[in-house]
């Protein structure tokens, strides 16, 4: 038996919108810890890891660990039927082949339930070890989104370099080149608008902008984004989900020939 009641239902709507273009089908794993997901895009270049901790739900009942395969496009269709202020409850039975989404309007005058078919998904779970990153950049998520969008109109790939000067985003295309440097900026009252650069050693990596642009669909989940870079690891782009967990996107770098 599974019953998860999420008062801020819009969070679930946003999470699914953020990942549905990257991943078609995914297993949602439910345990005492929370609701989690790990999935790769079809070319295995990017990976998304989601965690919604049990404490973030108003009511959380998960009698035993279960994995529920869902088509994210279908899930999106159903969650779009929930209002932004609705409370969403996810209900399922052990071994059942469907899951129910219940939507309650804030003043309880409209209650809907949508039953969705589950699917069997063969997915390989990758072990992601804790790592020391060469550099970690925290910046406003809207700024990161703007940079990825702007650069993708000029080139296909971006070089992200962190030095003591700041973080530099560089692209090159048929029409020319572009460099955007963001410097550390802690001296503002609003911490969400700060750019904070922690650097253990300089790092420079090249990534496909197409994927980074896809990750920025999570921008509305968090005011800030954290970019963790190491020369021998995929970059991690993390959006924290208030009081609940995170959505992390991993992207494998381009490798020099």
């Amino acid at each position: 038996m599974l019953e998860l009641r999420l008062v801020q239902g819009s969070l679930l709507k946003k999470v699914i919108e953020a990942i549905k273009d990257l991943v078609t089908d995914a297993n949602f794993d439910c345990s005492a810890t929370g609701l989690s997901l790990q999935a790769m895009d079809s070319s295995h270049v990017a990976l998304v890891a989601l965690l919604l901790r049990s404490e973030g739900f108003e009511h959380y009942r998960c009698d035993r660990n279960i994995s529920m395969g869902m088509n994210l496009n279908n899930m999106s269709k159903m969650l779009k039927c929930a209002g932004n202020d609705d409370i969403i409850t996810i209900k399922g039975d052990d071994g059942g082949d469907t899951i129910t989404f219940m939507f309650e309007s804030p003043n309880q005058d409209k209650i809907s339930d949508f039953e969705m078919k589950l699917m069997d998904i063969d997915s390989e779970h990758l072990g992601i070890p804790e790592a020391e990153y060469h550099a970690i950049v925290k910046m406003p998520s809207s700024e990161f989104s703007r940079i990825c969008k702007d650069l993708s109109s000029i080139g296909d790939t971006v070089v992200i370099s962190v030095t003591k000067e700041g973080v530099k985003f560089t692209t090159r295309g048929d029409i020319g080149t572009a460099n955007i440097v963001c410097r550390q900026n802690k001296t503002i009252d609003k911490p969400d608008e700060a750019t904070i650069i922690e650097m253990n050693e300089p790092v420079s990596l090249t990534f496909a902008l197409r994927y980074l642009n896809s990750f920025t669909k999570a921008t509305s989940l968090s005011e800030s984004v954290t970019i963790s870079l190491s020369s021998d690891l995929p970059v991690v782009i993390e959006y924290k989900i208030a009081d609940m967990g995170y959505i992390r996107f991993y992207l494998a770098p381009k490798i020099e020939d």
Partner: peptide
């Protein structure tokens, strides 16, 4: 421009 890396080159299946 370099070739695109894949996740399995960095993380091993559990």
């Amino acid at each position: 421009k370099g070739s695109q890396g894949r996740m399995e080159s960095f993380f091993k299946p559990m």
